[in-house]
Amino acid sequence: MEIALLSGIHGEKRKPVVYNIRMHELAVAESLIKTVLEKSEDEEASRVVKVTIVVGNLAGVVTDSLHFCFDEVARDTIAEGATLEIETVSATAFCQSCRDEFEVGQYDFACPRCGGVIIPSGGMELYIKDIEIE
């Protein structure tokens, strides 16, 4: 590991810490496959058939892109060809003015009934629900 320590105190000059991984959903897919493979190994599986995950609508994950990246990172593993099932869940919000409660999307900023201030809760879910293995 090389670290750029550009410190006046230490005076050492080294190169920056360098990583080379692109794209947000790829990072998510990599974390996902790691856990899936660990769990499958624990269960002594020979093949992963399906992976079901839960993604909140405010979690900032593009599901099409995640499908694409999952297929890529699963290649040459026992999860190659596995179906990735994505269950989406919505955030809810409570209006501070009219006390109405409703589902909100990423781009809802006000109560649809009275225009009042809302604070979303939930919607940030990003977890593996279960895996189907052989």
Binding site: L6, S7, G8, P16, Y19, R22, A27
Partner: peptide, 16 residues
């Protein structure tokens, strides 16, 4: 700064 470190992600769009 008393101490400064640079991280280059090589494309990754956030720090971890």
């Amino acid at each position: 700064a008393e101490w400064a470190v640079q991280i280059n992600t090589g494309g990754r769009c956030h720090l971890e």
